[in-house]
């Protein structure tokens, strides 16, 4: 029961917040709505037993990405109070496309989730031997990340360095 209530509250926040992000006229309010959506998504992660991921989401999305967004908004509004009013165009096309995508995803989701519900992999994963006695989400996450997923993990760090240097070079003012 608790999960049902929590799910619907979070889903409501997500959908309303997302609608505010795409239809709002004040860019800064859009950013704040995005913060609400991101926090609610973190709540959904907790609901699904992904505590570590949830707090990583808050730390990275809300603490870092959203701050970048707010800074970009402030810098692009000439610092002083020149407010940009957002204009939406091609609303009909956008609505049609969004409905189409949603219909497709919902159809696939419902049919597939019915199809896959009973079908779970019965092959014993060899990585389980490493996770013997692991009792917390964090331990399992870290063990998996540093054993089976070590290559993507290292690649992600290189990727982040590339992105960092790239962003610095792009945003730097010319001497």
């Amino acid at each position: 029961m608790g999960e049902v209530i929590a799910f619907y509250i979070l889903a409501l926040i997500i959908v309303l917040g997302a609608l505010a992000v795409v239809t709002g006229r004040n860019l800064f309010h859009c950013g704040l709505s995005l913060a609400a959506v991101l926090l609610a998504v973190a709540g959904l992660f907790i609901l699904n037993g992904a505590e570590f991921l949830a707090w990583v989401q808050v730390l990275i999305y809300v603490g870092a990405v959203l701050v970048i967004i707010l800074y970009a908004i402030m810098l692009s509004e000439n610092i002083t109070g020149e407010r940009i009013l957002l204009i939406s165009q091609n609303r009909g096309v956008g609505f049609a496309a969004a409905t189409l995508v949603f219909a497709l995803i919902a159809f696939l989701g419902i049919s597939l989730s019915g199809l896959l519900a009973g079908h779970t992999s019965s092959v014993k994963d060899p990585v389980l031997a490493l996770l013997e006695g692991a009792d917390s989400n964090v331990i399992v996450f870290g063990t998996l990340l540093l054993t089976r997923y070590i290559l993507p993990f290292e690649f992600a760090s290189v990727f982040l360095v590339i992105a960092l240097i790239g962003a610095l070079v792009i945003a730097r003012t010319a001497e």
Binding site: A18, V22, A97, V101, F102
Partner: peptide, 14 residues
């Protein structure tokens, strides 16, 4: 799945 589909569709609209 439906919730995430909805969110994705809203993103597409935006």
């Amino acid at each position: 799945l439906i919730l995430s589909g909805l969110l994705f569709a809203i993103g597409i609209y935006g």
